[in-house]
């Protein structure tokens, strides 16, 4: 009996100090990550807000401006042009990504043998860098050495090489194609995860009731995928709104600043003109817009389904 009681007694006696010690231990475990985040994320975030209220050159003294940077932002026609361009880009790139991602997800969700290999292949462009893939496409699209023009010429679809990246509309088309190639696998996997979460019984029941494949797709699968679509859409739209690499590398913002995205404009102000305060104000502006966009999208696609 004594042998059984002793550990319990000891544990009971030590309970208060033990739980306190565990409290301290837990706090110590998370402390490094917390300190790191405070120093490298919270502090810079607050500093962005503080800098946005100043004229802040790279060298020399910052001077307080109040809300003047924000007034300048509202009057900055390039800022609005960049936002509008970024919006156009987002509107153009999102539908092909989602239509293709959905079709690819349907394909790789089938029970065919070896379908996993296709899933892997479609996903490969996702794991290479956007900067690197943009460079790759610069070469593919080149009017002299690019293979794309070579193929189109050999097929007889074009009579002379197309100079893709110097015309705004052609450049937009080319960049959209390159980004769909690069990112569609990501949305495909998210949609696939959503599809696999739909219980088989629902399909079987519908099949018994005589619903065709397309009817099952339209009336059962799509409604049930709402929340997955919402997540994938938010991630994709935010990604498009933050576009920089592809335009910096593929068009360098040209011709005549016509392909300057919002982040590109922030980059130019902060790191080309060294108007750091103004760049900070633009950053805050972009943050607010992104926040509103996410809320809007989640509201539109809010999901109340349970199964």
């Amino acid at each position: 009996m004594a042998a059984v009681f002793t550990p319990t007694k000891a544990a009971r006696r030590g309970m208060g100090t033990l739980s306190q010690r565990r409290m301290v231990a837990g706090f110590l475990f998370v402390l490094p990550a917390v300190l790191f985040t405070v120093a490298m994320f919270i502090f810079p975030l607050l500093m962005t807000g503080w800098m946005s209220l100043h004229n802040w050159p790279l060298l020399g003294q910052a001077t307080f401006l109040g809300i003047q940077n924000y007034v300048a932002m509202v009057q900055d026609s390039q800022f609005w042009a960049s936002l509008w361009f970024t919006t156009q880009y987002t509107l153009l790139v999102t539908p092909p990504i989602f239509i293709l991602a959905f079709l690819l997800a349907l394909l790789v969700n089938s029970a065919l043998r070896g379908i996993g290999i296709f899933r892997t292949i479609y996903f490969i462009p996702v794991v290479i860098g956007l900067g690197t893939s943009s460079l790759l496409w610069v070469w593919l699209l080149n009017d002299r050495v690019g293979i794309l023009n070579g193929i189109l010429l050999d097929l007889g679809w074009i009579q002379q090489p197309v100079i893709w990246l110097v015309d705004k509309n052609l450049a937009m088309t080319a960049i959209v194609v390159s980004i769909v190639w690069k990112t569609v696998g990501f949305s495909m996997i998210l949609l696939l995860a959503g599809m696999q979460a739909v219980p088989d019984e629902l399909y079987q029941a519908a099949e018994v009731d005589g619903a065709s494949y397309w009817q099952r797709l339209w009336y059962i699968l799509l409604p049930l995928l709402r929340s997955t679509f919402a997540l994938a859409l938010v991630l994709s739209v935010i990604g498009s709104y933050l576009a920089f690499d592809q335009f910096y590398i593929m068009t360098r913002g040209g011709p005549q600043n016509q392909t300057i995205t919002a982040v590109y404009w922030i980059f130019n102000n902060s790191f080309t003109y060294y108007k750091l305060g103004y760049g900070a104000a633009l950053s805050i502006g972009l943050l607010v817009i992104l926040g509103l966009l996410s809320v809007l999208q989640l509201r539109v696609l809010r999901d109340d389904t349970t199964y």
Binding site: L45, T48, F244, I266, S270
Partner: peptide, 9 residues
């Protein structure tokens, strides 16, 4: 919060 927005600080 996208990291692009705090790159300057």
């Amino acid at each position: 919060i996208p990291f692009q927005s705090i790159l300057t600080p």
